[in-house]
């Protein structure tokens, strides 16, 4: 299962402050899309609107539409809980539940959604999800140990396993490698390439090489200045963004002239 996302005229607010203005973007199913841009340009904020995590922050609200295969996430009567169980999220810092074992961490989301699951189904799901996150061989002998005992890179892959265990349509990643070493980063990037076969992946990254390596399409966000809203400047095939961007600001950014 994998669905496309279409965003129409989205404005994102923190209370009265307009943080991101007028975003229109179409993200294809089974693709990897990277959001790049300088710090504070609103790319993470925008990412969080795609599964209604933005409104968890007091004062956070949006105007406009986000369509998941044509269904508006923000239509009145849509439960954000349902949205988030279909659009999973991996955070900047690995955040496995410290009080749970590795196994329980993987099953956390599944148990949440109210389903009773048999022991054998649970075992299969744990193995499948951990294999999907390229973590199975490293942890199969210590599934009952706490997830917080793993290394940072392993914890992040555990978080990805936890996310794919719920079988979402879309996986959002908010700078998933920024707290990891190069080898763990490589492991996650390989994983993103595999995830693309089954899921729509959207990744925010500060690392332009990473965007170039993993993504099919890239969106460049920028702000005109402090206190001004962030905007989507350019969205195109990754190769085009990095070799032949249409906008001057994009070219300056990807060539390292600012940001």
């Amino acid at each position: 299962m994998s669905k496309r996302i279409d965003v129409k005229d989205l404005n994102v607010y923190y209370s009265k402050f307009l943080a991101v203005e007028g975003v229109n973007i179409n993200i294809a199913a089974k693709s990897v899309t990277a959001f790049i841009g300088p710090s504070g340009c609103g790319k993470s904020t925008f990412l969080r609107t795609l599964n209604r995590m933005h409104e968890v922050i007091p004062g956070g609200r949006v105007e406009g539409e986000v369509l998941l295969d044509g269904d508006n996430l923000y239509e009145p009567g849509v439960d954000p809980v349902n949205v988030r169980s279909q659009i999973g999220m991996v955070f900047q810092r690995p955040n496995p539940f410290p009080t749970m074992s590795i196994r329980d961490n993987v099953l956390a989301g599944v148990k949440l959604n109210g389903k009773k699951i048999s022991r054998s189904d649970a075992d299969a799901l744990v193995e499948g999800s951990l294999r999907g996150a390229n973590l199975w061989n490293e942890v199969k002998d210590r599934l009952d140990k706490p997830g917080s005992g793993l290394s940072g890179g392993q914890q992040q892959r555990l978080c990805i396993a936890r996310t794919i265990a719920v079988k979402p349509d879309v996986i959002l990643m908010d700078e998933p490698c920024s707290a990891l070493d190069p080898i763990s980063t490589l492991a996650i990037e390989d994983l993103i390439n595999e995830l693309k076969n089954d899921y729509t992946v959207v990744i925010v990254t500060h690392n332009m090489q990473q965007a170039a390596r993993v993504s099919d399409k890239t969106a460049f966000f920028n702000i005109a200045g402090t206190g001004k809203p962030g905007k989507l400047i350019e969205y195109n095939e990754t190769a085009t963004i990095f070799s032949n961007p249409a906008e001057k600001a994009t070219e300056d950014y990807v060539s390292g002239r600012f940001g």
Binding site: M53, S85, M89
Partner: peptide, 10 residues
Amino acid sequence: HEEAALALGA
């Protein structure tokens, strides 16, 4: 951790 749970659909 709270956001981790919410993002899983809690």
